[in-house]
Write a protein that binds this DNA or RNA. Structure first.
Lengths: 342, 342
DNA sequence: TTGTAAGCGTTATCAT
DNA sequence: ATGATAACGCTTACAA
């Protein structure tokens, strides 16, 4: 076992000073041709690589971006990571991913951990528990310390920072309008409770578009799932009790459970009931019938978040503060869970 | 904006030396009650947190584990990450995830990057390109430098390190035996080309179990997918041309494409043809029919990998080298894509 | 009980 | 053209 080579060792070996080695390797013009060649050859031969930790300490920047997300076993989040990673790598940044597992405490812990020298900034989506507690002091904390923060997907007005979101309301409106266009009259909504902001916004879109079409809202046709673990049963019950000719679900899982429930009720999708989901994941593509869905373009969101963050990181401090919110457009992907347009 | 507090600042503020502050905060017994209280109160009030980078540099360990995987938008890998994360966190380690995107160059790059001070060790699954090139110098490199490495899932004999794998051969045998038990006679295999080790092993299991049951192998019933992007068409073609009463696919995607192809051929799953997949992902659970599958227990694999790595990291160097291979058992999960046992 | 100084691996600023 | 030194933030002998 041969431990890592350092500047000091090279210097000793070649009988020059450490600074000479450092300069030679960075092609400083003030080093003699000879010495430089000699040093570079030696370093190359023994495969010298600078120690990032030392560089981070010295430069007081790490060139890495920290991502903290609620869960990793989740298609949408992985596409976002993928997008962040792509853009970050292009610009010479590395990416660290940490998980909050939707726990407030773990979110705080991870942020503190990464904030203590491991990353230059954050890209995050908030833990569910944080949204419930409405305790955002840890975000204020890092912002205060001068670390840029970009929030995506699950964001909140109270936190002042750059944000990347999708047009949830518009996306939902597109979806419901599409259902109306295919002739649906009684459109059920399967959503989440309101503290999950996406649930709230998509619900708003649903309500707005019905209003715009002068259709009266029937509260019985709105289901708000409280307990994810019990969503299947709740949805089945909802479908059994109500008569609808279309369902708009705020995510894939709800959409699929709706389809199952509809089929078990003896009805056909899309002939009797159309179903539209949200999030264009694996499931939507491969399910049979494949799902018509509102695509969130997670990768694009990740890319935008990375751009915003890196912009902030590389801006001079005197250029003043201003926070942007980038809205990534959704698009409706038509597949086989909806009737075709009339 | 208030930048991070350091020991030095506390020392200046309280008019003591840096080492006194350091010791007080670490509850060293050799600090006077008074001073200690004063310092701790101050630190607490101003929310002092030690700088990890400086600690890493000093201690020459980072307490973080680097995971490098081929892709993140992939259910199995995310479950592994989740498992690593859980165990690592319990033991006070952090986790950094990097992606190779199945590229050899990026795998090398990321390893070098993380090896230069960012992590104490690696948990990895090899990029496809690396397996093809059979160039493993970068692994030898880090091992040589004394950084422990644990390989999982896609592993290779030539690299000497700890490994976590599943019993691919046994898993495949379980699956095919199950099909035989349900009365199948002509069992098709949809696998990958042989340099993907899982494909090779699962194929071996298929062959072995047929042999054990004295069933002659029909090479026409074996499909090895070369180009993932074209797998759907290849599978359709395969199903169309061959008459089988069961299919064993080495992953979910292949299984689902097989089911589609079978249905499009006018046959029913599982009545006419049973299908078993490998990997118990989202798709397997939610597809209709839900898939009977060999579950890989990714989370458990991740946990085992983390344990192995941390064991190595915390072992004294003089305890000698020995490499373990942990085999995580697969289990067959029966669902609706197979006929029930006779 | 507290302070001084060296060191982790770099780079930047001064000297020489 | 090269070397010595300080500094990044922290810990830890060793001195006092």
């Amino acid at each position: 076992m041969r431990p890592k080579l350092t500047l000091k060792q090279i210097a000793r070996e070649l009988d020059v000073s450490i600074s000479t080695v450092s300069r030679a390797l960075r092609d400083s013009s003030e080093i003699g041709e000879e010495t430089r060649k000699k040093i570079k050859a030696f370093a190359k031969f023994y495969n010298y690589k600078p120690n990032n930790i030392a560089l981070s300490l010295k430069n007081r920047k790490t060139k890495t971006i920290g991502i903290i997300i609620p869960e990793i076993v989740h298609y949408f989040f992985t596409t976002v990571i993928s997008g962040v990673e792509k853009v970050a790598n292009e610009k010479g940044y590395n990416v660290i991913v940490c998980l909050s597992n939707n726990s407030f405490d773990k979110e705080v812990l991870n942020m503190e951990l990464l904030a203590n020298g491991s990353t230059d900034g954050f890209i995050m989506s908030m833990a569910k528990e944080t949204l419930q507690k409405e305790d955002y002091h840890h975000f204020a904390e890092v912002i205060n310390q001068g670390m840029p923060l970009v929030l995506f997907d699950r964001v909140i007005d109270e936190i002042h920072c750059d944000k990347v979101i999708i047009d949830d309301v518009i996306g939902a409106k597109k979806a419901v309008q599409y259902l109306l266009d295919t002739g649906a009259k009684k459109i059920g909504l399967v959503s989440t409770v309101d503290y999950v902001s996406v649930g709230k916004l998509r619900t708003r879109g649903y309500l707005e578009i019905l209003r715009e079409n002068n259709i009266e809202v029937d509260q019985n046709l709105i289901l708000k799932i409280e307990d994810m673990d019990n969503s299947e049963a709740e949805i089945k019950d909802f479908i059994d009790k109500n008569e609808v000719d279309a369902v708009f679900a705020v995510n894939e899982h709800f959409a699929i459970h709706a389809i199952k429930a509809i089929q078990e009720k003896g009805l056909k999708v899309p002939e009797d009931v159309s179903v539209i989901g949200f999030t264009n994941g694996e499931l939507s593509k491969r399910f049979i019938p494949s799902l018509t869905t509102v695509s969130q373009h997670g990768e694009r969101m990740g890319g935008e978040a990375a751009k915003l963050l890196i912009d902030k990181l590389e801006r001079k401090p005197d250029e003043g503060e201003s926070y942007k919110t980038v809205i990534v457009e959704t698009s409706l992907i038509e597949r086989n869970s909806t009737k075709s347009l009339i």
